[in-house]
Amino acid sequence: MTKRCVQMLLLLGVVCLLVTGCGGTQQGNSTDGAGGQAGEAAGTGANMTVQPGTFQFAMSGMAKPYNYTDGENNLVGFDVEIATEISKRLGLEPVPVQTPWGSILQGLKAGKYDAIIGGMSITEERQQQVDFSQPYLIMQAVMFVNENNSKGIKGKEDLKGKVVGVVTASTYKDFALELVGPEGRVKEYETDLFAMQELKQEGRVDVVITDLGVGMDAIKNGNIPAMPVGEPLFLDECGIPVQKGNQELLDAVNKALDEMKQDGTYEAISKKWFNKNMLSPGNE
């Protein structure tokens, strides 16, 4: 064998060793890298929200003073301030999203936004579809009538055979159907304000069932000749729903709410909009 052949064989062996060594190193790095990335995602909450760095919360934008659009078409109100404060405590940019109430739950389930902060009642049916935070608001369902009240409605026992207006896809609908009976009728409206406006002309609806705060604001600012009657029909505990199984976001929202209640931020926002703590069922 010539000297040149020996040199070629030695060179080939070195190359083989290098290739084998790099292959082993690459396999090890690939495994470590995958594990590291998975751990990083779980630890930093990269998948907690639809769009990293933002907290997108949905509402109808038509439930004044909870959430509505101002003169510059910006979403404002109690819900918006609560949501913005939660975003701040999560270290995320707040992004309000206006969407029709009738399809708002489907939008959350489809991943169009991270949460709904718009006065959604916690019900067993909804809990099967989404995960709710602790209550952040207690709403009082009240009956409103035209100020003339020619039919003399004073309480829920007077609703049999009557026409009752409610907002669509609300907990008020099922309750109203029970009260009016087979001879009555329940009319649905896109918003509480639209329902309340029906009371301007007596006879279109006999009663509107809605939240006390929403109804009183409509009377005050919408020039509606209506008034509340009777005792509250029921109390609605409202939570913040997130997608089913998003425990990380749910825990973060609950933690933020706890902190807001403890340090007085929640009560300050609540009294700004309603002059009362909206987690208290009475008027104090």
Rank of each mutant, 00 (worst) to 15 (best):
Q7D: 07
M62R: 14
A226E: 11
V205E: 14
M216D: 07
Y172G: 14
G165S: 10
G230R: 04
W101H: 11
R89V: 05
V130K: 03
L199T: 06
E147Q: 15
D251N: 15
F234P: 02
I117H: 03
P225R: 10
R89H: 04
N73P: 00
G39F: 06
Y68A: 08
A110H: 04
Y68C: 02
R4L: 10
S170V: 05
G53S: 07
L179E: 11
V242F: 08
S133Y: 01
T265R: 04
T2D: 14
F234H: 06
K64R: 13
M143T: 08
E198M: 13
P65K: 07
V207Y: 08
A218K: 01
Q129H: 02
G239A: 08
Q128F: 04
G118Q: 05
Q98E: 10
Q243T: 13
A252K: 15
A195E: 12
T31D: 08
M120N: 12
V145F: 10
F234N: 09
I219H: 02
F234M: 14
K220I: 03
E157Y: 01
N254Q: 09
S150T: 15
A42V: 09
P241I: 11
L12K: 03
Q37G: 00
F175M: 12
F144K: 06
D131W: 03
N283P: 01
V130W: 09
T69N: 02
V14F: 10
L249A: 03
M120K: 15
T84W: 04
Q134L: 13
V145Q: 09
P94D: 10
Q243R: 14
M216F: 01
K200H: 05
P52N: 09
P225E: 12
L177V: 11
D79E: 15
Q247L: 09
N146I: 07
P94S: 10
L90S: 07
E267M: 04
Q247V: 10
L257R: 01
N221G: 02
F175L: 11
L75N: 00
K261Q: 15
A115G: 02
A34H: 06
I86T: 06
V6I: 15
G61S: 06
Q51W: 04
I209R: 02
I104K: 04
E183A: 15
G28P: 01
D79H: 15
P182E: 10
K271V: 05
D32C: 00
K261N: 13
M216L: 15
A268D: 12
L10V: 14
C5D: 07
E178V: 09
I82F: 04
N146T: 09
Q197Y: 01
L235M: 13
L159Q: 05
I153K: 06
F78K: 00
K244R: 14
N29P: 01
Q129N: 06
Q106G: 12
G102Y: 05
M196F: 09
N148V: 10
V97F: 06
S103H: 03
